[in-house]
């Protein structure tokens, strides 16, 4: 349980895991709660690493309202953000684009959206689900976490 709060991979919360504890040894004098805690914690980390672990990232449903003439710019920008277009429609002379974009790529989106559209587009976003991150991004995250752990040590 302790270890779930700081996942072994990147120090993030872990979820959706089933644990079967089936064996252990005790010492008549020296066994106490803290010993088992630490042992379980380490065993969990080891097993977790062996179990082909994956990082999940939050993905948001984003809805963008934009004038038709900057559609191209917005679309190519979405691709650069690993975004997936889900739906397109028009309303009140504006185009409405629905897309799914990982939160990591959303930082400063309002700034770049207004520079693409000259301030005419607006957007809203809402949490959708957790999805697996692509392998290259995961590798990079692991490296960053290892480095930051070394810094702390």
């Amino acid at each position: 349980m302790d270890r779930m709060e700081q996942g072994p991979l990147t120090g993030s919360y872990a979820r959706d895991v089933r644990v079967c504890i089936y064996d252990g040894k005790m010492h008549p004098v020296d066994s106490n709660e803290i010993s088992f805690r630490l042992a379980a914690r380490n065993a969990f980390s080891t097993a977790f690493r062996d179990a082909n672990p994956k990082v999940l990232e939050p993905v948001y449903d984003v809805e963008i309202l934009l004038p038709a003439d900057c559609m191209g710019g917005v679309q190519s920008d979405l691709q650069g953000r690993r975004g997936i277009m889900m739906d397109m429609s028009s309303a009140n002379g504006l185009e409405r684009v629905k897309a799914r974009i990982p939160l990591k790529e959303m930082s400063s989106y309002s700034t770049s959206l207004s520079s693409i559209s000259g301030g005419r587009a607006s957007f809203s976003m809402k949490f959708s689900s957790y999805e697996l991150v692509p392998a290259d991004v995961q590798a990079q995250l692991l490296k960053e976490y290892e480095e930051s752990k070394q810094d702390e040590d």
Binding site: V17, R18, V19, C20, I21, Y22, D23, G24, K25, M26, H27, V29, D30, S31, N32, I34, S35, F36, R37, L38, A39, A40, N42, A43, F44, T46, A47, F48, R49, D50, A51, N52
Partner: peptide, 25 residues
């Protein structure tokens, strides 16, 4: 995956000993 870990610290004072075997899936 399966793992086991033995936590052992019995080098003086009240010792600590615990061993856990577990499977995660």
């Amino acid at each position: 995956a399966r793992a086991e870990y033995r936590h052992k610290k019995q080098s003086g004072g009240s010792g600590q000993f615990g061993e856990v075997h577990l499977i995660v899936e």
